[in-house]
Computed example of a mutant assay.
Amino acid sequence: MKTLLTILSLMGVLLSANAQKQIFLYEGRPKGSENWNWDEAISDKNVFNTKVVYNVSRPSITAYIPENPNGTAIVIAPGGAFHTLSIDSEGIDVAKWLNARGITAFVLKYRVARSFTDDPVKELMGKMQNFKTLDEENAPVIPLATEDGMNAVKYVREHASEYKLDSKKIGFMGFSAGGTLTMSVVYSADDARRPNFVAPIYAYENAIIGTNMPKEKTPIFVAVAADDQLGFMPHSINIFKKWFDAKHPAELHIYEKGGHGFGMRKTNTSSEGWIENFGNWLKMQGYLK
């Protein structure tokens, strides 16, 4: 009997570590995309050999819950030019890193533009030859994605006690389009849906919506590679300067190499250290012990 109890206890520990729970942010199809009749799908057969989610029509967050939550939560928005979501390197892998340090993570699947084939990356690569056209296609989608991001923050804040969280320690981070979304959320949200700190990683500034700088102190962590193939390095500098000029706590890291989309990938460049730098920053801000 004692041995059985020990086995059951160990199983409980294993199940509680990195426990996952998917939460849909709306009942049914949300406002603005009521007529979207396509379903979310996953593709891992593409030129980058990475898993991407596409055709998100029912936005959700998946909670990654650490064994011993420290009270801090972060919503993570993967990138993909508002057409796909790089769900592993810019989502789940980040969540697991945070979990190992006691931070509760919520990986966001926000609404994206429709893909018409089972190779959404190939579709997107063709469109990225002309950013003006891509921006025009994305323009109707970004406000919807921003609403998803704000509602993700709202959900986490309203359920803080359920997840053993401090409602004043809810952050939002994102990569590329997810970084654009991060800034759109913090500039557009009301108090109930505004994150307490943000981390845009190689964000695309031109597509950010909203202009309202938070009145309360809102720390920001910004990271990018100098050799970003899409030329986003100056965008991160601009975001940092706006925050610095507004007298919010601001930190900027520009890595010599790493390219665009380094996320949690092994690049053999100094950009691999961004997550450790982020962890040190979280400690300095009081979000990580």
Score class of each variant (00 low, 15 high):
residue 140 P to S: 03
residue 45 K to V: 09
residue 158 E to G: 00
residue 163 Y to P: 01
residue 104 T to I: 06
residue 120 P to G: 04
residue 28 G to I: 08
residue 85 L to D: 02
residue 188 S to A: 04
residue 126 G to M: 04
residue 70 N to P: 05
residue 184 S to V: 10
residue 209 I to V: 14
residue 67 E to N: 10
residue 263 G to S: 14
residue 214 P to E: 05
residue 245 D to W: 03
residue 39 D to L: 08
residue 45 K to D: 11
residue 14 L to M: 09
residue 211 T to E: 15
residue 130 N to L: 04
residue 45 K to M: 01
residue 67 E to D: 13
residue 250 A to P: 00
residue 234 P to E: 06
residue 257 K to W: 03
residue 137 E to S: 05
residue 282 L to F: 09
residue 201 I to S: 07
residue 207 A to D: 08
residue 55 N to T: 03
residue 92 I to F: 06
residue 16 S to W: 10
residue 223 A to T: 15
residue 26 Y to C: 01
residue 71 G to M: 06
residue 26 Y to M: 05
residue 282 L to G: 01
residue 225 A to T: 07
residue 245 D to H: 05
residue 224 V to G: 02
residue 82 F to R: 08
residue 104 T to Q: 14
residue 39 D to C: 02
residue 229 Q to S: 15
residue 11 M to Y: 10
residue 65 I to Y: 15
residue 155 Y to H: 13
residue 119 D to L: 07
residue 257 K to G: 09
residue 83 H to V: 06
residue 262 F to H: 04
residue 158 E to H: 11
residue 55 N to C: 11
residue 112 V to Y: 01
residue 60 S to H: 12
residue 226 A to K: 14
residue 175 F to M: 09
residue 94 V to F: 06
residue 188 S to W: 12
residue 218 T to H: 05
residue 223 A to G: 09
residue 73 A to K: 04
residue 104 T to D: 03
residue 256 E to Y: 02
residue 191 D to I: 13
residue 35 N to Y: 03
residue 44 D to S: 13
residue 200 P to E: 11
residue 144 L to A: 06
residue 11 M to V: 13
residue 246 A to M: 11
residue 67 E to C: 08
residue 200 P to A: 10
residue 217 K to F: 02
residue 54 Y to S: 05
residue 137 E to M: 04
residue 271 S to Y: 03
residue 184 S to W: 12
residue 147 E to K: 15
residue 229 Q to C: 10
residue 270 S to Q: 10
residue 124 L to Y: 03
residue 71 G to N: 09
residue 258 G to E: 06
residue 272 E to P: 00
residue 214 P to K: 05
residue 210 G to N: 07
residue 280 N to Y: 10
residue 186 V to R: 11
residue 222 V to P: 00
residue 8 L to N: 07
residue 288 L to C: 10
residue 267 T to Q: 08
residue 203 A to L: 15
residue 91 G to I: 11
residue 3 T to Q: 13
residue 236 S to N: 14
residue 75 V to N: 01
residue 177 A to H: 02
residue 180 T to E: 08
residue 142 I to W: 12
residue 108 L to G: 01
residue 13 V to F: 12
residue 91 G to Q: 06
residue 222 V to I: 15
residue 270 S to V: 06
residue 244 F to M: 11
residue 147 E to F: 03
residue 79 G to M: 11
residue 48 F to L: 13
residue 161 S to K: 15
residue 109 K to H: 14
residue 162 E to T: 13
residue 234 P to W: 04
residue 227 D to H: 13
residue 134 L to V: 06
residue 257 K to T: 07
residue 272 E to C: 03
residue 13 V to K: 04
residue 259 G to W: 05
residue 10 L to T: 04
residue 270 S to D: 13
residue 40 E to I: 07
residue 183 M to R: 01
residue 2 K to V: 11
residue 126 G to E: 07
residue 135 D to N: 13
residue 197 F to P: 00
residue 233 M to G: 00
residue 133 T to R: 02
residue 90 E to Q: 12
residue 181 L to R: 07
residue 150 M to F: 08
residue 162 E to R: 08
residue 104 T to C: 14
residue 218 T to K: 11
residue 225 A to H: 05
residue 265 R to T: 09
residue 165 L to R: 03
residue 92 I to L: 05
residue 81 A to T: 07
residue 31 K to W: 04
residue 10 L to I: 14
residue 105 A to V: 02
residue 144 L to N: 01
residue 152 A to H: 06
residue 159 H to N: 15
residue 180 T to C: 11
residue 2 K to W: 08
residue 271 S to R: 03
residue 168 K to Q: 14
residue 209 I to G: 02
residue 244 F to E: 12
